[in-house]
Design a binder for these strands. Structure first.
Ligand code: FES
Ligand code: FES
Lengths: 140, 140
DNA sequence: TAATACTTGACTATTTTAGTCGGGTATATA
DNA sequence: TATATACCCGACTAAAATAGTCAAGTATTA
């Protein structure tokens, strides 16, 4: 079980932004340099964050991205959803005839994975961006 | 975030076995048929379960695998460990010079992922095989 | 002695992930 | 108004991980 880079980078980048005064556009170039994340990859990620109303963009020189809401009100679950990172541990697929098809007859483990999904999502529901900032000294 | 088939199949197969009287060898062929899992893949999985003292094998005809302990005493965390499914959501690698290297300077999100890992592992620590069996009617 | 069933390492196809490329458009400021 | 900055967006590709197969066994029992 691991996280993909898209989600990790999204959280890293947004946490980076949260350290600056709100309404002050932060350019992806700067985030890219500070966090060592490919600029082009960041662009891809921020497009999704924008579509999902987490950030808004300011074009032109001196432009960048701005958090659309206070970090306190941005839950990690929203960020994950925005970058298409779903928590889905069940293995059943509607199409398959045999085994796990999750339809009429659920397999013996189906309920377990459902429970796990809810459990993990719960973690993300209860964390927001500003939670990340209030840990003792941080350098980058 | 998702689970790989190895872990899912391992849990499914062991849950399947738990339904039979202990000391009664269950052949992989039977599990394969009941759970629609490739026999050859199951063999691979059970090799690991055996090495990790979760099952023991009985060779020859009428042979098969037997749980080494009572299902009550087999935690899901052990099963996951056995099939090399680690929960590891941090992104840092020791080698990389820049960004997340998890050494002297941990990035702003490192602690978060550590916390998440512990949280998820906790779920597996507190579930055992027999927990899966005591849900109302189950067909397969 | 035939059939069953475990043993093991190596190999391969498929899918997913991570990241790049190219060719844009909008805006600020000099 | 020219130019640099920085967002916009779809398509593409390399690399890694996953899922599963193959081949060639060995041990045991009926
Ligand atoms: S996991 Fe849903 S039916 Fe098996
Ligand atoms: S996740 Fe460990 S340093 Fe970034």
């Amino acid at each position: 079980m691991k996280l993909n880079t898209k989600s990790r980078y999204a959280v890293m980048a947004l946490a980076d932004m949260s350290k600056f005064p709100i309404n002050n556009p932060v350019s992806l170039r700067d985030i890219s340099l500070r966090q060592s994340i490919s600029l082009l990859y960041l662009e891809q990620i921020f497009l999704k964050l924008k579509k999902n109303e987490i950030v808004k963009s300011v074009r032109g020189s001196n432009g960048g991205y701005v958090l659309k809401r206070n970090p306190k009100n941005i839950k990690l679950s929203e960020i994950f959803q925005a970058v298409d990172q779903k928590v889905k541990t069940v293995g059943c697929k509607k199409d398959s005839k045999k085994g796990c098809n999750g339809k009429s007859v659920k397999c013996i483990t189906h309920e377990l994975w459902d429970e796990l999904d809810i459990y993990i999502n719960n973690f993300f529901e209860n964390k927001n961006l500003s939670d990340l900032l209030m840990t003792k000294e941080r350098k980058n």
